[in-house]
Nucleic acid binder design. Structure first.
Lengths: 190, 190, 190, 190
DNA sequence: GTATAAGCGAGACGGTACGTCTTGTCTTGGC
DNA sequence: GCCAAGACAAGACGTACCGTCTCGCTTATAC
C-alpha cells in the first residue's frame, strides 16, 4: 500500500488505456453526438460500470483523451523574433482548431460547455488555449512594452482566428501573417 | 387557394406560436441539453407530429424562436463617429453574447454546430454576427481607408469578445472601450 | 371512440399476441429464472416500453399468457358419478401441475408468490385451482351430505397431490384412484 | 493437520457465523427477492469471495441459516394418543409454514425450487417436512392398521394445510382438529 | 352540400442510451 | 491459504426520448 490506493484490486491501467483509445477512435468515426458511454465501453471491451467508475460523462473521457494531445500540438518553439513566434503560434492554433483530431474534440467540448455547466467547469479547470499562448503573448508584451494586460492580449491574439473557425468561415481564408501583424501593431501602440 | 397552400386544413398559426413560445420558456427553465422535442410539444399543448411537421430538430425550433430576434438586439444606431459606433456595437455584442436570452440560444446553437453539420448549416444560412457588424465595420473601413478586407475586419472586431465569452472568461473583464480603440488602431495603420 | 380507449393510436393487438407468445416460448426454452422483460421484448420483436406499458413484471405477462390455458386444462366434463368426476379431476390436476406447459408457469408463479407480495396478489385475484375444483367439490359435497365446508373440501381434494408435486416427489407415485377414494370417504363420514 | 483442512489459514468461524446471521436478518428486513450475495457480504462485513467460497447461491446460505432450524420447530413430543399427536403436529406445521421465521425461508426456497433445479436438489437432499412427520405418521399407521403407504399418508396429512398456506388462503381458517380427524378417518378405513 | 385532403392532439409503436444494480471472478495487501 | 476490499466484464433493470405510425376530429378548398 505504498501508493495510497488502499486495499482491493488496483485500477486496471489497460482498461483505462482502452477507454481513452476507444473514445479517440469513436469521435472520428461517429462524431460527438453519436458518442455514447455505452458505445465507448463496448468499443473498449470494458464493462460500462468501469467507464462510469472513473469518468462521469463522455465529455470527461474525451477531455482526458484529448487534452494532452492539445497541449503538444499547440506548443511552438521560441525564437528571438516575437513577431515570427506570434505567427508560428497562430499557424499552430489554426491547424489545431480547424484540422486536428484533438482540435475537433476541443471544439466539441467548447460547444458542449455553452449549455452544460459541468463541461464548462471541466474546460475552465485548464485554460488550454490561454496557457498555450501565454509564453508567446508575454514575450511579445515584454518586447513592445504595451499597456495591454495579459488577458487582453491573449483575447486579441486568439479571438479573430477562434471566431473565424468556430463561426464556420472558410479556414483557408485565414491570413496568419496579417493577423500577427495586426496583433503586433496593437501591442506597439504608444 | 389564394395563398398557394392547396387543399386541406391550413397550418395552425396558434400551434406555431405555442411551440415557439414553449421553446423560449423551456430554454430558460431547463437549459439546452434538457430541451427535447417531446418536452416542447407537451409544453406547447401540441402533438409531437405537429412539431416534427414544421421543424426537424430542436435546433431549428430554437433558431426560429430566438436567434432571429438577435438581429434587433445587435442593431445599434449610427452616429458620425465611427469609433463611438464601434464601441456601441461591442457593448451590444457583449450584452447579447453574455447576458441576453437570445444570446444564450445563439451560444447553444453555435456549440451544437461544432459537432452537428445540420446545425452548422443552419447557422451558416445567415451569418447573424457578421451581418450585424457589417454596417459599423464598413463605415469604419471607409473612414480609415484600411487595406483589411471586410471579413478580416469583422473577425478582428468580433473575435476578441467572442473568444472571451465563449471560453468562459469573466464577462465583466471586457473593456469595450479598449477593444474599440485597438480595432481602430489596426484599421488606421498605413 | 366507442370502446372507451380515448384518443390516440389504439393498442396493437399483434404486439400483445407476440409478447404472450414469446413469454410462452421462453419459459420452456430458458426457464423462469432466466426469463427477463428485455428477453421477452426482443423475442417478441417489440419495444421494451411496449411490454412495460401493459404489464408491470414478467410475472404478469406469464400470468396472462398461461391463465387461460390453465382453466381449460383443468376443466373436466361432469358425469353422474361424483367419485368418477373426482378422480377425473385429480388426473387433470396432476397432469396440469406436473406435466403441462401452463402448469409449469403456474408453479413458477406460485413459487414467486411466496416471496413477492405483488405476485401473491396477482394469483389471489383468481383462485385458479380452487375455481377449477369448485364444481366437482360441490357435487361431491351435495351427494354425500358432508359437514365439510367448501374450502375444507377443496383443500382436502387438492392438497395431497399439490404437496406431492411441489415438494418434488415422484409424480408417477401418485395414485389418483386412491386419492379420490380417500376424499370420498371423508365426505361420506357421518 | 489434525482436522483435515490442509495447509493455510483455516476457515474463519466468525465469518461463517456473521454470514448466517446476516442472511437471517436480511430475509426479515428486505425479503427474499431483494436478498443478494452482495448484500449478504456487506451486511456481514465479509468479502464477497468469502461467501462464494462456502456457498454457491443465496439459496444455500438461506438453507443453512434457517431451514435446518425448522426441524426443531416441527418436532412435537409423543403421547399415547396418535390422534392428539397428529393434531399437535398439524398445529406445529401450520405455525411453521405460516408464522415462523424459518417457515418463511422454507416457503421462499420451496418457491424457488419450482423454477431452479439447484434449489430443488437442495431441498430434496433432506425432506424436511416428510421427515418431521414420519414419527407421527408411522405411529398413526401402526395404530390403525391402514393400507396406506407411508408416503401416501404423509401427503394426506401435510397436503391440505400445505396447500392452504401456499395458495395464500387465510391461515386462521385452518381447523387442525378437523384435519386431524379427517386424516384418522382415512387411516381407519377398512 | 358533399367529397376530398391536410392539419390537429393524443398516444402507442420499435428502437436505443441512460445510469444503476447484481453477478461471479480476479487481484491486491494483510493476517 | 484465508480474509476484506474492491476493480473487473457482463448484462438486466426500469425510464426517457427518438422519430414514426395510427387513431378520431376539425377545418379548409374543390367539385
Amino acid at each position: 500500500m505504498v501508493d495510497g490506493h488502499g486495499r482491493g484490486r488496483p485500477r486496471s491501467e489497460s482498461a483505462r488505456a482502452a477507454v481513452l483509445h476507444a473514445v479517440d477512435d469513436l469521435l472520428v468515426e461517429v462524431g460527438y453526438a453519436a458518442l455514447t458511454m455505452k458505445g465507448i465501453a463496448e468499443r473498449a471491451g470494458v464493462g460500462r460500470q468501469t467507464v462510469y467508475r472513473w469518468w462521469s460523462s463522455k465529455a470527461e473521457v474525451l477531455y482526458e483523451a484529448s487534452v494532452l494531445d492539445a497541449r503538444q500540438e499547440l506548443s511552438v518553439p521560441r525564437s528571438d523574433d516575437p513577431r515570427k513566434d506570434v505567427e508560428a503560434y497562430l499557424d499552430a492554433l489554426v491547424a489545431f482548431l480547424a484540422r486536428s483530431h484533438a482540435g475537433a474534440a476541443y471544439r466539441a467540448l467548447m460547444g458542449e460547455a455553452q449549455h452544460d455547466p459541468d463541461v464548462a467547469a471541466l474546460l475552465a479547470s485548464r485554460d488550454i488555449l490561454g496557457e498555450s499562448a501565454a509564453d508567446v503573448v508575454d514575450a511579445a508584451r515584454a518586447a513592445c512594452g504595451t499597456a495591454l494586460s495579459s488577458e487582453q492580449a491573449t483575447a486579441l491574439l486568439i479571438g479573430p482566428a477562434f471566431f473565424h473557425v468556430l463561426s464556420g468561415r472558410d479556414v483557408d481564408g485565414i491570413d496568419t501573417t496579417a493577423l500577427a501583424e495586426q496583433f503586433m501593431r496593437v501591442l506597439e501602440a504608444p
